[in-house]
Design a protein around this nucleic acid. Structure first.
Lengths: 252, 252
DNA sequence: ACCGCCCGAATTGCATGCAGTTCTAGCTGT
DNA sequence: ACAGCTAGAACTGCATGCAATTCGGGCGGT
């Protein structure tokens, strides 16, 4: 892994803050924290053994990345992107990752190739395991690729948008997600190694596009937008039974 | 203005924090704050009439956007992107803004067209004024365009990367910057109105590329570069280590 | 003069405290 | 029983205080 630099890359890593950021990011993309989940500063602080100040700062960072929604005087929640936002995120991601493979084609070093194939092997191995893990690994493959451009900016944007896509996947996709995706990863590596720029870009484009269209199913009759629409079908049941609250108090 | 969204999107606007962010952003892109300028928390807090906590939070946000560099236990400074980072930023920007015009071509409403032309007129008027102002206006034209996609994510990324480019312009460009750029803006609007997607994308691409190549002059020589960066490669020898790091240099 | 060394000032890292806002649950009136 | 109301809990917004670290300049050695 490349987490060993003296100057930790992107933006800032005030240590405690960035530790919390990483933990939350991971929890979010592994769907341990679902979209809409509440993130009170105190609870976070308590969990991570820091004060609210730090937890707050971390939330601010994650909000800047679009993973968390921050409304004034309200509890922060895991972001709940609209369907349209999800589609936009994928569109952006496609362009960014085309750029990645364009820069990378034919320029991978041997150790890099080894690292990539090792990662894909890991993806294969995790296939039977938890769904969340395989999603995370699939995402990390793309981020790993971005890292190899050694362009900090590109890394940052690809990471961010990939995480966002991950988030939307947990909202709009069906259970099964990345079956043949792993093979597509291999195909991309092959094209990169061969130095076939056009092919690599096309493969990446198709790969992401297929993931997007497979995941983001219906544009819906009327622009499936807010969670109000999503909750509509459940409204009937809800009227008959109490709304289940999060066991937040159960913590202590 | 085009304040169409109910909630002022983009990450968070905790008021005080975002006010400071906006102020600093503007100061940075207008070059009132040059790259490398120190930004002590207390001073900021005093200037804006808030506590360090808030100033700190603002710096965190700006760092997340890449406008500020935050090193642990050290005074925050305005970011000083390397030449390569500048070039990378422009590459990303090109792809993002191509996406913008692709989405916008033929879909502009009359008031939007009016707003755009009004903005370009303002650019024209500011031509004789301060250089900083015309740079800011030029940048804001692109952001305005992004806004019209009404895709919050796209807005965010285009804004960020445009600001970063602005920043690099102040580092590596010569005094005169955007002469015919204004006409190029007009041409882009025309293509968008006509609905000529390919033309608009091509114009935008060329526009940004020419700005980049005109601005980012020297591929190798060190202009505003840090002495430390320049000496970095020699440091390895000095420390007694072997010089075995080819991959880094291989990138460019 | 030039180098490293050391100590005080400046500055950050973080926790805590208080005030203001929102949320929740219990209570009252009809 | 139920809608509306209200008080208290929960939570955020922000400032301040203290410990740890870095910065900057004077001092002695060579």
């Amino acid at each position: 892994m490349a987490g060993r630099d003296r100057t930790s890359k992107t933006a800032e890593s005030t240590d405690k803050v960035s530790v919390i950021c990483r933990a939350l990011r991971r929890a979010i993309i592994e769907q341990a924290l679902e979209p809409g989940a509440k993130l009170p500063e105190d609870s976070l602080g308590e969990r991570f053994g820091v004060s609210r100040t730090i937890a707050r700062h971390a939330l601010g960072q994650l909000a800047a990345e679009g993973l968390v929604e921050l409304r004034r005087n309200r509890i922060a929640v895991v972001a709940t992107p609209s369907w349209q936002e999800a589609r936009d995120a994928f569109d952006i991601r496609i362009e960014l990752e085309r750029l990645v493979v364009r820069q990378l084609a034919g320029k991978l070093t041997k150790p890099q190739i080894a690292e990539l194939t090792a990662h894909v092997d890991a993806e294969d191995r995790a296939r039977d395991g938890a769904d969340a893990v395989s999603i995370r690994l699939a995402t990390e493959f793309h981020i790993l690729l971005a890292h190899m451009t050694s362009s900090p900016i590109l890394v940052r944007y690809v990471s961010e948008v990939a995480y966002r896509c991950c988030l939307t996947l947990s909202l709009y996709s069906r259970p099964h997600s990345s079956e043949c995706a792993i093979n597509e990863h291999r195909a991309i590596i092959a094209a990169l190694v061969k130095g076939d720029v056009a092919k690599a870009m096309e493969l990446m484009h198709h790969h992401l596009d297929s993931v997007a269209t497979r995941a983001l199913v219906a544009p819906s009759p009327q622009r499936g937008r807010d969670l109000l629409d999503i909750l509509a079908p459940y409204a009937d049941e809800a009227s008959g039974e109490k709304v289940v609250k999060l066991p937040k108090a159960a913590r202590r």
